[in-house]
Simulated scan of single mutants.
Amino acid sequence: MIREFKENDLNSIMKLWLHTNILAHDFIDIGYWKSNYDKVKQMMPEATIFVYEEDNLIKGFVGLSENYIAGIFVETTYQSQGVGKTLLDYIKERNTELLLQVYEKNSRAVTFYLREEFTVHNKQIDGNTNEAELVMNWNAD
Score class of each variant (00 low, 15 high):
67 N>V: 09
102 V>F: 06
100 L>E: 03
129 T>Y: 08
104 E>H: 06
77 T>D: 14
59 K>H: 07
107 S>C: 05
115 R>T: 14
129 T>R: 00
60 G>T: 02
97 E>S: 13
81 Q>E: 14
120 V>F: 04
88 L>I: 08
134 L>Y: 02
88 L>Q: 05
61 F>C: 12
112 F>M: 07
67 N>S: 13
81 Q>C: 05
122 N>S: 00
67 N>C: 00
79 Q>N: 13
130 N>H: 13
113 Y>K: 00
89 D>S: 13
76 T>Y: 12
119 T>L: 13
56 N>K: 15
78 Y>F: 10
107 S>T: 10
66 E>D: 15
125 I>W: 07
99 L>S: 11
130 N>P: 02
69 I>R: 05
96 T>L: 03
103 Y>F: 00
123 K>I: 13
89 D>A: 05
85 K>Y: 03
84 G>N: 12
84 G>W: 00
88 L>A: 08
110 V>W: 03
132 A>H: 06
135 V>G: 09
106 N>L: 08
112 F>S: 01
85 K>E: 13
123 K>W: 01
77 T>R: 11
106 N>F: 10
106 N>H: 02
67 N>H: 08
96 T>K: 12
97 E>N: 03
124 Q>A: 05
92 K>M: 10
73 F>W: 12
73 F>M: 08
76 T>G: 13
93 E>T: 01
118 F>R: 09
116 E>Q: 14
63 G>M: 14
102 V>P: 02
91 I>R: 03
79 Q>R: 15
78 Y>T: 10
62 V>L: 01
104 E>N: 07
113 Y>P: 11
99 L>C: 10
100 L>Y: 01
98 L>W: 01
87 L>C: 06
133 E>M: 06
59 K>E: 14
